[in-house]
Design a binder for these strands. Sequence first.
RNA 1: GUCUGUGUAGCUCAGCUGGUUAGAGCACAGCAUUCAUAACGCUGAGGUCGAGAGUUCAAGUCUCUCCACAGACACCA
Length: 512
Amino acid sequence: MKYTLTTPLYYVNDKPHIGSAYTTIACDAQARYKRLKGHKVIFITGVDEHGQKIQRTAEQKKIEPIEHCNNISQLYLKLWDKWDISNDVFIRTSSQEHINIVNDFFNRVFSSGDIYMGHQKGWYCVGCEEYKDIDEHAIESTCPIHKQKLEWRDEENLFFRLSKYQNEIEQLVNKEDFIYPISRKNEIINFVNSGLKDFSISRVNVKWGIPVKGYKDHTFYVWFDALLGYISSICKLNSNYSLDNLIDNGWPADVHVIGKDILRFHAVYWPAMLMSANLEIPKKVIGHGFLTKDNLKMGKSLGNIIDPDKLVKDYGIDSVRWYLLKDFKFGSDGDFQFRRFVDIVNNDLANTIGNLLNRTTSMSRKWFEGNIPEAINSDTHILQIKVVDTLKVYNSSFSIFDFSRALDSVIELATFANVYLNEQAPWKQIKLNSNKQLVANDIYSILETCRIIAIMINPVVPKLSIKILNQLNFNSTDINLTECCYWGLLQSNAKLPTPEPIMNKLEFIDDN
RNA sequence: GUCUGUGUAGCUCAGCUGGUUAGAGCACAGCAUUCAUAACGCUGAGGUCGAGAGUUCAAGUCUCUCCACAGACACCA
């Protein structure tokens, strides 16, 4: 089964931001999960490189726009490497394959009669770089933010007939599963109900963009260009630059994961564009929340930005991935607190899971000649029942991007095993030789539980997962979430390596 | 300004169609314990459920008003 998912194509105006990293690990976790479930996954990410802002930034740096884009793109690639991102494609909108797709796509939309020449008029603030919603009959007006005089602009642009798709889009956004979360869905519904207006898709004063063939001085508006990056990714992956055979190659996307700020482009404009071009529309759009830090918006002016590079350097990638996916409800805004980050990671990964593994492997080695004991069980072990229940919750949560609940269920399982161990107290039982088989059964079951826990957390903390499996002497290549979760695959009498902490505790560094 | 959402223990949140003494995890305190990463476990302290009024035998849960925060109200992404 194919499963295609995308992050947004990040705007390369500046170096990568923690918010982009958050979106990307969420996608990565889902991509890894789906792979473990046996899907053929296409995980798309990339960068959006055109537009006036980039042009200006490059000018300020006194370099060519493409040079600037090369630099920032490199930063993204490096970051995703450090963050263990398993994307299948990285698309750049300045690439030739993308430019070809944009042209082909435009031709299709043009043939549908959905393109016309119009005028973009209004009061424009140079500071905001946007048109202000101010009465066009006003003689003079100022920007409420910048307090500068607004310029009256009347620009010739190509327009896309969005209004033609009013009914189709209304139906689409009202569909049960298209937009998530629900609160955002309602916003979009309201927006659509208020009546869709055509929007412009070209600019005449922006040089750094893809030229519109046949229209001198016109370049495509960044959004028209950027959204198509998802399609060109599919083409790039198949080294096949045609819009005609996308279906078999992974289009439509199963889900676009984006920040809540760009939901409208993905849930309204983009589907309409695809309809016009006679292409399939994505199945789902998820707008997740934003991160704040100590309840404040992160921003340069406040100087409270979390640098994703430094974060990983200081704390390690698994910790960061775990915290962001475990403690934040996907869809809602989340508050990043370093104290809490350290506590959560230490408790969940070091104390609960790490220590469970450590204490059990240690007993196993001590009493069973350095090996995994052999279980001779006539009854289904209580831990096996618990594992099966956990897998149910885990799977149903993970597949709907409820990472937090999925991981909670895993921690609950590990805690259950810890409690069980305390209750059974094998260190007491073992003193009586007649109890040896009983102890063997329990130790085996707990090790087996650890093995399955390792597989369950694999999409979120891949490195840690492998460490656990190695400690259990279980082959971690080709693991999956179906057969590998069957009870009893852990090999009895296999040698256990010397136990060592799989996760060192984090120390709270108070300089953030 | 209009509309929407949120506001529950120090922190992050769960509480479905109103019904016994409001829950979890973390943090904190005590106990216990050594198989284990000063870890695990047990117990405890912590809340007038944003404020006020109303409906009801009964409201965190429904209605109204107010307060605070967040978001949407089309071309910055």
